[in-house]
């Protein structure tokens, strides 16, 4: 079985093909021109290099949110187009779970962060034990300082990953001290491989849904009242 998954939920764009839990190939570009211009050439290049065509792919998948509104729409519509043309399943994977997955081999807590602007972040907190994931904090949107003070109260070592870790590194360090583990920023951008692995697992367990955007719209209206 071959799975093609893409991620365009943040400023990076990636596509990966996974087969039976093994990575066949991945392309990640960061930062990119508009996703709409870049993702199809990336997919075409990847498949060509692997000597595959869209017809060889059994399952299509993409990260479905949260993330950039436009990025999500580009990614979701791209995989839907590819999948529906082949009459193949198209699976949605949580952006947050996919982002955390690559660090899941470290037993511990992983906090995923995506910049939601105006000092807010999309976040989630997961705990991995022997590769099994538990959701400690469901994906949500919050002011970064408020989130960090909640996390520091847990008094646990937490791995932070995501597109805005660099932006908030000082805040994270001052709230979490030595409890904050921050991977090299080069590792914080590539999510398609994880999305493909998760999609394959979901398909085999028959626990998947057709992809649908999960924008987690921040309430601009609430902003006024803060």
């Amino acid at each position: 079985m071959k799975v093609l998954a893409i991620d365009t939920s943040t400023s990076s764009a990636s596509a990966a093909v996974v087969s039976d839990g093994r990575l066949l190939g991945e392309i990640t570009l960061n930062p990119t021109k508009a996703h709409s211009q870049i993702i199809m050439p990336v997919i075409e290049k990847l498949l060509a290099q692997l000597e595959l065509t869209a017809r060889d792919i059994d399952i299509f998948a993409a990260t479905q949110g949260p993330g950039s509104f436009t990025g999500l729409r580009v990614g979701i519509s791209t995989v839907k187009g590819l999948a529906d043309a082949q009459d193949k399943p198209v699976i949605g994977v949580s952006t947050m779970e996919a982002m955390s997955h690559m660090f899941g081999f470290c037993n511990g807590y992983i906090c995923t962060l995506i910049d939601a602007r105006r000092n807010q972040v999309y976040f989630a907190l997961y705990q991995y034990v022997d590769g099994n994931i538990t959701t400690v904090m469901e994906p949500d949107v919050e002011d970064i300082s408020i989130l960090l003070s909640k996390l520091s109260c847990l008094n646990k070592q937490i791995i932070f990953t995501g597109d805005c870790v660099e932006k908030f590194v000082d805040l994270i360090k001052s709230n979490m001290g030595s409890n904050a583990v921050m991977p090299m920023r080069a590792y914080c951008v590539s999510t398609a491989t994880s999305a493909a692995i998760l999609a394959e697992k979901m398909y085999l367990k028959k626990e998947y849904k057709r992809i649908e955007p999960d924008y987690m719209i921040k309430a601009y209206v609430d902003q006024e009242n803060k």
Binding site: F69, T70, R117, R118, I217, Y220, V221
Partner: peptide, 15 residues
Amino acid sequence: TENDLYSIDIDSYLY
């Protein structure tokens, strides 16, 4: 409405 601003992804332009 202000939420229409979200539909045009105004933040990605402003920032």
